[in-house]
Structures are given as C-alpha cells and as structure tokens.
Write a protein that binds this DNA or RNA. Structure first.
Lengths: 207, 207
DNA sequence: TTCATTATGTGATAAATGTTACTGTGGATT
DNA sequence: AATCCACAGTAACATTTATCACATAATGAA
C-alpha cells in the first residue's frame, strides 16, 4: 500500500504516507456503486487510487446532472468540505470504473492540515481545482445552448477515458445533461452530418 | 480598526486581529466599482467589513451571470482559492453598496492558515459555504425554468438587502440571469397577476 | 412645459427544446 | 427461427425562450 500511495500521490510526504497507512481504510468498489448520496452524512474523505468516479448533482425529480470526474490521484472535494463540519453531502458520487479508495476519517483530515504541509497543499489544490471546475459547469449551462453543451460533455468524457470511443447511450447522456433522449439523438445526428462523430449502438466515436 | 474587526469577525482570535491590523490594508470602494475582473491576477484576499459585493461569472459575449452576494463578515472565496497559487480570477466582483475592505496579502493568507486556528476555520468555512452556494446556482440553471429562477433571484436579493423593496430594472435582472428584458418583463407581469409582487419603475416590491 | 431619455408593456414571429407517439434495428434469449 | 427488449431515428406538435418592432409611461433636463 505504501508504495502505491507514493506513486499515485507523489507530493505526499513520507510522514503523511505513514499516517495514511496507519489510519486510513482501503475500500474497493465496483462499477455502478453509489459511494455517496445527497443528504447522506459524511465521515470520511475519499482519495481515489484506481478507477473512475463521476460526481452528480441530484434534482428533485430524479435528475442526475453530471458535474465532474474524479481520477486516480484526486480526492472528492465535497467530502473534504463537508468533512470539516460533518455535514451532509450535497452531491452524489457513482463509480463508473472499478475503484480503489482510501478513506480518511474526518478527524484526521482536519488534524493533518496543521501537521503535514503536503496534505494542506493537496487539500487546497483540490478545493481550488474543483471550484474552478464547477464554475466551468456554471458557464456551460448559463451561457451555452444544448448543442455546445453536448460537445463539451463528449469532450470531457473522451478526456476521462483517454480514448475517442465513448460507451454511452443517448438516454444516459440525456439524463446527465438533464434533457430528453430525443434532443440528444437529434443533436448527435447533426454532429454526425458535420463529420464530428460516428454513431453506433451504445457507442459514439469522436472523429 | 481593531474594535471593528472584532465586532464583524467575532471568531477571530486576538492574535489574529493584531496581525491583521499590523499587516492588512484597508480600502474603501464606492458602489459600481469593479474590484476584480476575470483574468486579473489576484494578490490579496478580500474581507468585507461594510457594504455589499456581487459576484459574477462573465460570458464571452459580455454576459454577467450573477452568482452570489458577499456580505460584511464574509470573504471572497475565489480570492482565497486563487491566492494560494497567485492564480488569475475566474470571476468578476462588483461593489453594489459602498464598501470597506480589508486586503490581506496572499503570502500572509497562507501563513496564517498554519498559525491561527480561527483563520483556518474561517477560510475552510468560506470555502464550504461558497461551494455550496455555487452548487445551488448549478441546481437552478440545470433543473429550473426561467420563472422559478427569477423567483429565486428576487428572493436572494431581498435577503441581501433585508427588505422587500428591490431597486432593480428589468434589464439588470435580465443581464444577471442571462436572458432578455422582454422575458423578464413578461414573467414579472405574471408574478404580479399571481399577487407575488407589485411593479414600479426601477423598483419591485415583494408581497 | 417641452423634449429627450430610459424603463416598461406587448404583439408577432422565430428558434430551441420538450413531449408524444410510433418505427425500425440489433442483439440476446428461448 | 421466433420473440423480446433496450436503443435509436424521426415526425408532429406543444411549450419555452429569444428576437424584432413598436407603443406607452415615467423621469429629469432644458
């Protein structure tokens, strides 16, 4: 475990890694697992070492609005922010690729801030990048129409998987952009006509 | 100055307040001043002691999407987040009521995190509440139609001024919600018919 | 007052998005 | 092969929002 952490979180100090090994819990989750629900109490900060997690904001009528990915080497900013005061989660986290997690009890999360410079910097960095990411989300929905938002959505998913073949159904995309399948079908068709993508069953290839 | 800070930031420790008095710069700004522009470098964290500031996300075509208010006793989360790495601002801050500010050089902002528990808690609290506020903004634009968003907008402005009489033109509201004046005029008319508001020139009264 | 300016109201129309309803297709199961 | 089912395509229509065009009203300046 120690070697793994060192590799995935290269900025963590030796002492911090020792503390993590001694105090944190490792957890495996399989694709589809929901790690955190809106309204649920948070008592751990989650660090991701393997797999992928998607973060959603839930609407009242069952909407699941996609906000951002968490990749190995990253942490869930919301779990950190809430952890400080043992707040309830404002978001929903779903595993989309079998994941390995390090769960840090919230009391330590706070304690380490004072004791480990590398932890402090990691937490602040996480806050900052997530805040900026959410601001970009605001941008998209505030200023852009659905066609542009769809393109942005596809681009982000391509970045996350590091490939140009996305295993997504139209319905999935529609749910995560809070619109309807028909709208997505139409817009994808237009993108295909513009030569940006090729469409297949459960699969969209970026060109 | 010392007494004022103690009153407005009651959780700050004595030592912290001393440090602030010794190191921070006070600044007055009048209504209409833009304190921070998108893309501008940040080298101070801003604490507000008097007045009101509105925070906007700017669109490419001159949109000014309203996100949240900063009240006395609060700080600009973005200025804190960026300050850590001397990043450029992702937002625009405009004074809407003559303001008194305490400007903390970014080097101290970071140093105090380790030295003053009350500063640390204030910063973390600021992060958390702003993050939650922005998530609520996402909610609104992702899940709600313009009529609901307008009601929410008016409610927040009533809370900010602590009264039910809002000095806003339809055009102003339209700009801050990134829509057109006509849409706002029509929706306000409907609200008036439902008995929720009464409309006047440059002035909307909530009922 | 008269004029100019800005704010507001409103109809007509266009465009984007949401909804309903139906068709077809590919793949899995039997 | 026959059946089932999730996924995708698309037409028709409703609704919401955006845009254009103008009318009217309130306010301050000359």
């Amino acid at each position: 475990m120690e070697e793994e952490i060192k590799k995935i979180f290269p900025n963590f100090s030796k002492e911090l890694i020792k503390e993590i090994v001694a105090n944190a819990i490792q957890q495996s989750s399989t694709s589809g697992d929901v790690l955190m629900r809106t309204g649920q109490y948070i008592n751990h900060t989650m660090l991701l070492t393997k797999g992928q997690i998607k973060i959603y904001r839930e609407g009242e009528n069952g909407g699941e609005f996609f906000m951002y990915y968490i990749q190995p080497g990253e942490a869930c900013a919301v779990s950190m922010i809430c952890a400080t005061k043992s707040q309830t989660s404002q978001i929903m986290a779903k595993v989309v690729e079998d994941a390995e997690l390090i769960m840090v009890p919230l009391a330590l999360m706070d304690k380490w801030m004072m004791e480990h410079r590398s932890w402090y910097e990691f937490v602040i960095f996480t806050y900052r990048t997530r805040f900026e990411e959410v601001l970009e989300v605001v941008d998209n929905i505030a200023f852009r129409a659905m066609d542009e938002r769809l393109e942005f959505y596809l681009k982000r998913h391509a970045e996350a998987c590091g490939c140009k073949d996305l295993k997504l159904s139209h319905q999935e995309i529609a749910t995560e952009l809070n619109t309807s399948r028909e709208v997505i079908s139409r817009l994808l068709k237009k993108m295909e006509q513009r030569g940006l993508v090729s469409l297949h069953r459960n699969h969209i290839a970026l060109l």
